[in-house]
């Protein structure tokens, strides 16, 4: 198996063309897919991470995420629960397909190595 480290928490198995969790080796999804589809997802209230500093009853700009401006969408490895990525998205906005690697080029590079 040829395993290439791609991000802090993601590897690609170039032989089997699979995204893997770097920490536990869990197989997520095909390497030509959006790896987020192989994760489990949780919506987190941003006030848990950035509770208001100014009084929210007096201003919407309270040094946190204003109501309506987004929630944290957290992507975890289904095997070990590590947070692979998160996005602060307006509700309903599609998650970003952030990594679309040229798998053929990656395989050729791995073979050369």
């Amino acid at each position: 198996m040829s395993r290439v480290h791609i991000t802090e928490y993601l590897d690609i198995d170039t032989d089997r063309e699979l995204w893997l969790c770097n920490r536990c080796g869990q197989e997520l999804i095909g390497a030509r897919e959006n790896y987020k589809r192989g994760c489990v997802v949780y919506e987190r209230d941003p006030d848990e991470i950035m509770p208001p500093i100014y009084p929210p009853e007096k201003t919407e700009f309270y040094l946190g995420v204003s109501p309506g401006y987004g929630v944290f969408v957290e992507f975890y490895c289904p095997g070990c629960g590590i947070m692979i990525e998160n996005e602060l998205l307006p509700e309903g906005y599609p998650p970003t397909h952030d990594l679309e690697l040229d798998i053929d080029a990656l395989k050729a590079k791995a073979e050369q190595a």
Binding site: P46, I49, E60, S66, Y69, G70, F72, E74, E87, L88
Partner: peptide, 22 residues
């Protein structure tokens, strides 16, 4: 920017707080 932070965290890190004056 005050409604939300602009820059994302990286690989599961959270962004910092947005700004606002008074």
């Amino acid at each position: 920017f005050s409604g939300r932070p602009m820059a994302p965290g990286l690989f599961g890190g959270y962004p910092g707080r947005p700004l606002a004056g008074a």
